Simulated scan of single mutants.
Amino acid sequence: MTDRLAFARALYDAVPLYDPKRAPVELDLTDNTNLWGLPPTAERTLRELAVSRITRYPSLYAAELKEALAQFVGATPECIVTGCGSDDILDSAMRAFGEPGSVVASSEPSFAMIPIFAQMNGLQYVGVPELPDHQPDLDALLAANPRILYLCSPNNPTGAVLKRETLERAVREAPGVVFVDEAYAEFSGVSAVDLAMRVDNLLVIRTMSKAFGLAGLRVGYGIGATPLVRDVEKSRGPYKLNSVAEQMALAALRHDMQWVHEHVTLAVTNRERLAAALRDRGYTPLESHANYVCVPVARAVEVGQALRARGVAARPFPGLPHVGDTLRISVGPWELVEQFLVAFDDATADVYGAAS
């Protein structure tokens, strides 16, 4: 018996399972989720949810949630598509707009699932290293003649925001659809939604997993011209957002926005405090507009392993273009950041001391 099924699609032979190798630890700062907990009304909604919400199918296309999301982002409901996390929107959109063999081009480093989604959908992935200022190399990306051009703002893992003139040129000159992933937009205050409302080839992808603290519910959404999101919705299909997720997301949008704004402010404040603490230790963190700090750290994989040995996890990114090895550290309540800093001091002393 072989590992490969005779009826399997050949293109799936090269598709890896996404596996970031995250063993449980006491303090996990690797996934940039909200470490302050649930928005209060959303939590109450979970506790009081009617049984009928579970025993019956959810709404077809989350029409009520689309209305609330549209009000939140400054769009109209017919310009919104929802999904099971922003991953679902990205995958469905690639299926909707990518012809077999056409190119998905992305700046690198960026979201690790993009080349995987491209492979899954029979598309050709082209990765282009970013420029030294952490902006995408748009000339090289456009030269790839992409059917789909993926950009991320703030970018994961660097935290850089896409310059508006770069985005506008991308939308103007791209031969196909431009995706802008705004998973961390709430922390930057910068968004392309207004542009997406004026053009027909820009899809903005967002999530309620970060600022809203609902990562376990997998609520993602896309914003774009009505014909654009309609095709994503066709690709995605009905009943893809479960009832619990829809009701909790609605509660957060309708009643918990003050809580969300307060904790976004806390995250930004603690991001800057963490960056300052790292600078005090002689490091040079990258300027971040998200809820994490990416900092160049020599032998980052080894430092990450030493941190895990102390019950703390940060995400190593070895060999980033123009930067080298880095650690990406999620921010949360300051006492958790302090716990990280103590472990980081010990871990770096162990790793660098062992080399001397």
Rank of each mutant, 00 (worst) to 15 (best):
129 P>Y: 11
129 P>W: 12
130 E>D: 14
132 P>D: 03
132 P>V: 07
132 P>H: 01
133 D>R: 10
134 H>K: 13
134 H>Y: 11
135 Q>M: 09
136 P>W: 04
137 D>C: 09
137 D>W: 06
138 L>F: 02
139 D>S: 13
139 D>I: 09
139 D>L: 11
141 L>Y: 02
141 L>V: 05
141 L>D: 00
141 L>G: 01
142 L>I: 05
142 L>E: 01
144 A>Q: 02
145 N>A: 14
145 N>P: 00
146 P>K: 01
146 P>W: 04
147 R>T: 12
147 R>Q: 15
148 I>A: 09
149 L>R: 04
149 L>W: 02
150 Y>N: 13
151 L>D: 03
153 S>N: 00
153 S>Y: 02
154 P>A: 12
157 P>M: 02
158 T>H: 00
162 L>N: 09
163 K>S: 06
163 K>D: 08
164 R>F: 03
165 E>T: 14
166 T>E: 01
167 L>Q: 07
167 L>C: 06
168 E>Y: 07
169 R>F: 00
169 R>P: 02
169 R>S: 04
170 A>M: 11
171 V>Q: 06
171 V>L: 08
171 V>W: 03
172 R>I: 08
172 R>F: 09
172 R>A: 15
173 E>H: 10
174 A>Y: 03
175 P>H: 10
175 P>W: 12
175 P>T: 12
177 V>H: 00
177 V>S: 02
181 D>S: 14
181 D>T: 12
181 D>G: 10
181 D>A: 14
182 E>G: 07
182 E>F: 02
182 E>C: 08
182 E>D: 02
182 E>Y: 01
183 A>F: 15
184 Y>N: 13
184 Y>I: 10
184 Y>C: 12
185 A>N: 02
185 A>P: 01
186 E>P: 12
186 E>Q: 14
188 S>T: 06
189 G>W: 05
190 V>M: 09
190 V>T: 13
190 V>K: 11
191 S>L: 05
191 S>M: 03
191 S>W: 04
192 A>C: 14
192 A>D: 06
193 V>S: 04
193 V>D: 04
193 V>F: 06
194 D>L: 11
194 D>Q: 15
195 L>Q: 01
195 L>G: 00
198 R>Q: 15
199 V>M: 07
199 V>P: 01
201 N>F: 09
201 N>K: 14
201 N>I: 13
202 L>F: 03
202 L>T: 01
203 L>S: 10
204 V>W: 03
204 V>T: 06
205 I>T: 13
206 R>G: 01
206 R>P: 03
207 T>Q: 03
207 T>P: 06
208 M>P: 02
208 M>I: 07
209 S>N: 13
209 S>G: 15
209 S>W: 00
209 S>K: 13
211 A>C: 07
212 F>E: 03
212 F>Q: 01
213 G>K: 00
213 G>V: 07
214 L>H: 08
214 L>K: 10
214 L>Y: 09
214 L>P: 10
215 A>C: 08
215 A>V: 14
217 L>E: 10
217 L>F: 11
217 L>D: 05
217 L>A: 12
218 R>D: 14
219 V>K: 07
220 G>A: 13
222 G>F: 03
222 G>Q: 04
222 G>A: 04
223 I>G: 01
224 G>H: 07
224 G>D: 05
224 G>P: 08
224 G>F: 09
225 A>P: 02
226 T>S: 14
226 T>D: 11
226 T>R: 15
227 P>Y: 01
